[in-house]
Nucleic acid binder design. Structure first.
Lengths: 321, 321
DNA sequence: TTGTATGCGTTATCAT
DNA sequence: ATGATAACGCATACAA
């Protein structure tokens, strides 16, 4: 391995001068700087991240933690983060699984964006207390080193339920999300409120898990007790996909017997038949805003909690009852 | 920051003893080991990755480089890698963009899996020569520190074309992939061979880019010159999705006027109507095999190039002509 | 079994 | 403008 020491030797200068030259410190003459750069090139010098980090206590790498890599959900979100961070000279790495929490602990990362149930609030607070900068996308958590960038779940759920009611439906199912999920809880709570506010109507909740399987199971249950057109609010789109599949080989039709609206407006929602009505928001923007806040936090500028607004996208999965 | 030095002081031992105790070195008494561990706990000691890495020249972190985070394609692949690596005590991070190549260069990573056109062959050879261990998923490249884990593209493309011909089609389009893509080139080459081998038939190629837009454009071209049922082999599924969308508001029907088979068998392919015929392979297995080979390479065990086999999944997107 | 001492490659302070 | 040198936190060869 070739180090600045080798460069110093070959160039006939001290390692300090080499370091200065390599880092563009103006204290060194243009002439010697050039020579040093040339030598570095010739020797194929590559800086050593570990040494630099040990000294500077900064890696210029940020992490995004996801519960899982699966789900067509994350692409745009991550792209939004990456672009924003790249502009500012930071690199982004995506991590998943409790095992990899050590990267945050041990200082591989200057900060992280969390969208990952596998982190407990306690653990995040612990990291924050140790000086790590965090942006949380999936919970409310208060600490000077933590900023929240949350979806406006309540607005979305309200839009969804009102949309169904507006189409004259009087019988409503909500397919819920995993217990402990902040987004799921917020959505459910707002859905219940909207139902209450809109007078007497038949209402039931089916436990879901945000995955296709639970969506399919919900569909089974719905058709098993079917006695006339129903409306369904699935707390995310993924479950709706499962529902479509489960209904495929039955006589029940989406948009006719079962009217459904989802949440997230994932890409697939535009391709399934009939097109799915869903709550939409810019995933890219969500990622970009999160990244921006994290950078502000790290660079000591003022950072604030942010909210990502949502809107309803209509679809043929909902018709008049 | 609390270091082993602090622990040593509090426990009344030397830093060497602390280091031994922390690393489970049997040279230290169970008694002192316990005391040291207790003190470490009390002080909330967290090891410093940079220091450890500087000394050991290993991070126990592996990278997967992707051209982009977008596309519903990667979830399972990455999950396969993560599981395999996790078992062996390695962490996985996902990286994208040339900017982040420095992580490989500067020693943040012990090795990497490459599925990323943004790496040139030269760059990869450079890294390999510097001692980095690599697994490539998207090219043929020979070096003692590089192993290939490639899809059997040729078999897949052959299956696809034969499937179309078997259904009596005499007019065939191939929608190609981006120039320079190994997978695209392999598939195209095999498709051409299969066409030649199967006697005279009308054949044309439409340049594609592996994204939805180019699929939609291809659909436009096909209907603009439509004069009777045609068969289409899209070199990946993503383009087929674009094709479905473009055809949606036209009188032309998939599986009736336009018979199409894709490649990759992405999840969406099972949900679009009619269900897409496509070339399938286990993405999870691809990831797991790649991870396994990378680990063998790193641990100096013998590693070999591997091939991932593919199969045809039928669908209603292809019917008899 | 435990302690001492050295070095990993870099940055940065202080001399010169 | 350049050089000598002391950290940074840890692992480990060697001494005790």
């Amino acid at each position: 391995m070739v180090s600045i020491k080798d460069i110093a030797k070959h160039a006939g200068v001290s390692i300090a001068t080499v370091s200065y030259a390599l880092n563009g410190n103006p204290k060194v003459t243009e002439e010697t700087r050039k020579k040093i750069l040339t030598v570095a090139q010739e020797l194929h010098y590559v800086p050593n991240a570990a040494a630099r980090t040990l000294k500077k206590r900064k890696t210029k790498i940020l992490g995004a933690f996801l519960t899982s890599f699966e789900g067509a959900f994350y692409g745009e979100l991550l792209q939004g983060m990456k672009e924003e961070m790249g502009k500012r000279g930071y690199d982004l790495v995506i991590c998943s699984g409790t095992q990899s929490h050590r990267m945050l602990r041990e200082g591989f990362l200057d900060g992280a964006i969390i969208l990952d149930r596998l982190f407990s609030d306690e653990e995040l607070l612990f990291h924050a207390t140790r000086g790590h900068k965090l942006v949380v996308l999936d919970r409310e958590l208060s600490h000077p080193n933590i900023v929240q960038v949350l979806l406006d779940n309540k607005a979305g759920a309200t839009f969804a339920v009102e949309y169904l009611l507006r189409h004259g439906h009087k019988k409503l199912y909500v397919v819920t999300g995993p217990t402990g999920s902040y987004d799921a809880e917020q959505r459910l709570q707002a859905a219940r409120q909207t139902v209450e506010r809109n007078g007497p109507l038949w209402y039931a909740e089916i436990p879901g898990n945000f995955d296709k399987e639970s969506g399919a199971a919900a569909a089974q249950r719905i058709i098993s007790e079917y006695s006339g057109p129903v409306a369904v609010f699935c707390l995310n789109d993924e479950m709706v996909i499962g529902m479509y599949r489960a209904l495929k080989d039955t006589p029940y039709r989406i948009g006719e017997h079962i009217h459904v609206v989802g949440f997230d407006h994932i890409e697939t929602a535009d391709y399934i038949q009939p097109r799915l009505a869903s709550i939409d928001y810019s995933k890219r923007r969500w990622g970009a805003v999160a990244a921006e806040q994290l950078l502000k936090l790290i660079e000591g500028l003022g950072s604030e909690h942010e909210r990502i607004y949502v809107s309803l996208v209509e679809g043929e999965s909902v018709k008049r009852s």
